[in-house]
Computed example of a mutant assay.
Amino acid sequence: MAEPAVPRGWRGLGRCVPAVVLVTVVAVGAVGTAAVARHSSGAPDPHATAAPSVRTAKVTRRDLINSQTVQGQLGFGPVKELKGAGTGTLTKLPSNGTTTGRGKALYRVDDKPVPVFYGDTPFFRDLKKVGVVGNDVTVLRNNLAALGYDVGYEGTAQRSPNQTRAPGSTFTASLVSALKKWQQDMALQPTGELKVGDVLVLPGPVRVSSVKARVGDPVAEDILGYVAPKKVITVPVDAQQVSAIKPGDPVTVMLPGRDVPGTVSAIGDTEQNDSSQPDAGDGSTPKTDVTVLPKRASDVANLDDADVQVEFVSEIHKNVLTVPIGALLALSGGGFAVQRPGGELVRVQTGMFATGLVEISGKGLTAGLDVVVAT
């Protein structure tokens, strides 16, 4: 049975094993013990040679793990810029470290609060005519419903035969009523209309990292920078290896002095070039940012920006027999074997390679068996 290939792109990283070149065995001599001749006087023969020594290892049963360990950066993730919309003058700004909340004001324009909604479509137009359809209407409906308002039946536009998906929700009379009640609760004029700039749409909770604008500036300018609300670890992974990583995968975060659990929360869509690691092609290695979230925020509460290492596990074979890779012998007729100290060859089938070990199986193999290891 042919040796399985070591996973591409994982060689030499973390606990992975580089490809191994094995020498074909033509003949194997048994390890013997040289006889010691003695003179009649009983003195040892000065020409006698000592028995040759061999290095052995035991077959062990264990979990075999294929992984890579990559350096990442602990912090609040990449900074994103926020630009205001609509018209008016900024009259109050948040402070650094402010965390947003759904339906709560982030800043004020013309002394009126500008609340935050969560979604993927900004309010790019005024919503005031019943029957208007769009994904911005869906954002309004979802947020008012999440805040506890009765938005009524969720109307959607009729699709034509050529449409592949609905374009969004419908601005219904029930939604107008819910909007009026929310505006009243926010001490805003209950018009039942939503103008561009009245509400800010963000992808989710964020933390203000910097304030660029000043009170008195027009709102339609760069206002602030924001980051993730919790500390995350940004790990640049080789683009060829990132396919083995999925959101939700458990990882091990190696902090100074201890290891803590974490989870892959996101994988970047774009590749960045790392000029510090030359490649044979364009002189740089493409990287994809993988975002890791510590399982317990308290584990990193006392750490500011710091370099940490993250171990990603790609494959686990549990409770398998293993030997050091140096114990493998390639047979002249094909296949592999291990050698007992007495010279006996035991044919084996190989499995996963990792951590300097190889998974083996075969007749007569048991944990604790001694095998010869190449020196």
Score class of each variant (00 low, 15 high):
Pro52Lys: 11
Asp126Lys: 15
Asp126Thr: 15
Arg108Cys: 09
Asp110Lys: 05
Gly72Asp: 06
Gln73Trp: 13
Gly72Met: 09
Tyr107Thr: 00
Leu144Arg: 04
Phe76Leu: 09
Ala27Phe: 10
Ala57Phe: 00
Val36Trp: 09
Gly101Phe: 00
Ala146Glu: 10
Ser41Ile: 09
Asp136Gln: 03
Ala43Trp: 09
Thr56Cys: 04
Thr56Gln: 01
Val114Gly: 00
Ala145Ser: 13
Lys112Phe: 00
Asn96Ala: 14
Ala34Thr: 12
Ala146Ile: 04
Phe124Leu: 11
Lys80Tyr: 11
Leu144Pro: 02
Thr49Trp: 08
Gly77Glu: 02
Thr121Leu: 03
Lys129Arg: 12
Pro115Glu: 10
Ala50Thr: 12
Tyr118Met: 01
Ala145Glu: 09
Glu81Pro: 03
Thr100Val: 08
Tyr118Gln: 00
Leu127Cys: 08
Val132Leu: 11
Arg61Lys: 07
Lys58His: 11
Ala30Phe: 08
Gly97Trp: 01
Tyr107Ile: 03
Leu147Asn: 02
Asn135Arg: 14
Ser40Val: 13
Pro52Ala: 14
Pro115Cys: 12
Ala43Val: 13
Leu93Ser: 00
Arg141Met: 12
Gly101Ile: 04
Pro115Lys: 07
Ala57Cys: 03
Lys58Trp: 10
Thr91Ala: 04
Lys80Cys: 07
Val130Ser: 02
Lys104Ile: 06
Gly29Gln: 13
Gly119Ala: 02
Val26Gln: 12
Gly86Pro: 00
Thr91Tyr: 00
Asp111His: 10
Gly77Trp: 04
Ser41Val: 08
Tyr118Lys: 01
Tyr107Glu: 02
Val31Ile: 13
Thr138Gly: 04
Lys104Pro: 00
Ala43Lys: 11
Gly72Lys: 06
Arg125Pro: 01
Gly103Ala: 02
Ala27Ser: 14
Asp111Val: 00
Lys112Leu: 10
Ala57Tyr: 02
Pro113Gln: 01
Thr138Lys: 06
Gln71His: 13
Phe76Ala: 03
Ala57His: 02
Ala48Val: 12
Val54Phe: 07
Gly29Pro: 07
Gly88His: 02
Val54Pro: 00
Thr56Ala: 05
Lys83Asn: 08
Lys92Val: 07
Pro115Leu: 08
Ala50Met: 10
His39Trp: 15
Thr87Gly: 07
Ser95Ala: 12
Leu90Lys: 07
Thr60Glu: 15
Ala34Lys: 11
His39Phe: 15
Leu127Ile: 15
Leu74Gly: 02
